[in-house]
């Protein structure tokens, strides 16, 4: 099971690399075409924005799993283990609630996004706005699993430390500026 999950995240990371490279190549190619050949790719502007949306919302789930989203740990840091666990429970409940609302809103809006196409690529906009399904569901699942382990006393000390902002890696710190 754990292997399948890890494999899935590897796949997401692969997607992120592909999407970011794709965006960079499209925009760069357009600069070169414009100055070198006085022409351009019509789809580049639109498609690179959509890639950007996907990078943001797929990456949001991946980084949520890694506890990398910017938080203010000042108060939490001062609490003991028990206080931290209570804050973690409340915090996960709020995260589940807002992410569920995000998912629900995406659901309610799906018909109007499905009935609209992008001006140049003609891509139905549900492909862009529908990413809310993935992010909403992804975050809810991760947070539910955490909540379950919190309530059954199976949360690890590393996770509690990560919640209080301790032992952040350099990568995580640089994600925060």
């Amino acid at each position: 099971m754990q292997r399948a999950i890890d494999l899935f995240y590897k796949f997401l990371e692969f997607l992120l690399i592909l999407l970011l490279s794709g965006m960079a190549i499209m925009v760069f190619l357009n600069v070169v075409l414009r100055y070198g050949f006085n022409s351009g790719l019509n789809v580049s502007d639109e498609l690179s924005r959509y890639f950007f949306v996907w990078v943001t919302f797929i990456g949001a789930v991946v980084t949520f799993r890694e506890h990398s989203h910017v938080g203010v740990e000042t108060l939490v840091m001062m609490f003991g283990r028990r206080g931290r666990i209570i804050c973690m429970i409340l915090s996960n409940i709020i995260i589940i609630a807002v992410s569920a609302i995000f998912f629900w809103g995406t659901w309610k809006q799906a018909p109007i996004n499905a009935s609209m196409v992008a001006p140049v690529t003609k891509l139905p906009m549900i492909w862009v706005y529908g990413i809310g399904f993935f992010t909403g569901a992804g975050v809810v699942i991760i947070a539910l699993e955490r909540l379950f382990r919190l309530l059954t006393g199976r949360i690890t000390e590393e996770e509690i430390a990560a919640f209080a902002g301790e032992h952040m890696s350099l990568e995580q710190l640089s994600e925060r500026t």
Binding site: L20, M23, A24, V27, D45, S48, R49, Y50, F52, V53, V55, T56, F57, V98, I101, F102, W104, G105, T106, K108, Q109, V128, Y129, I131, G132
Partner: peptide, 25 residues
């Protein structure tokens, strides 16, 4: 709920903000 869903995605759908990932890269 649609206020949340719509504004979230529309926020990233901006060409100017594309400069951010490129400068990070």
């Amino acid at each position: 709920t649609q206020i949340i869903a719509q504004n979230m995605i529309a926020g990233a759908d901006t060409f100017t903000l594309l400069a951010i990932p490129f400068f990070i890269l």
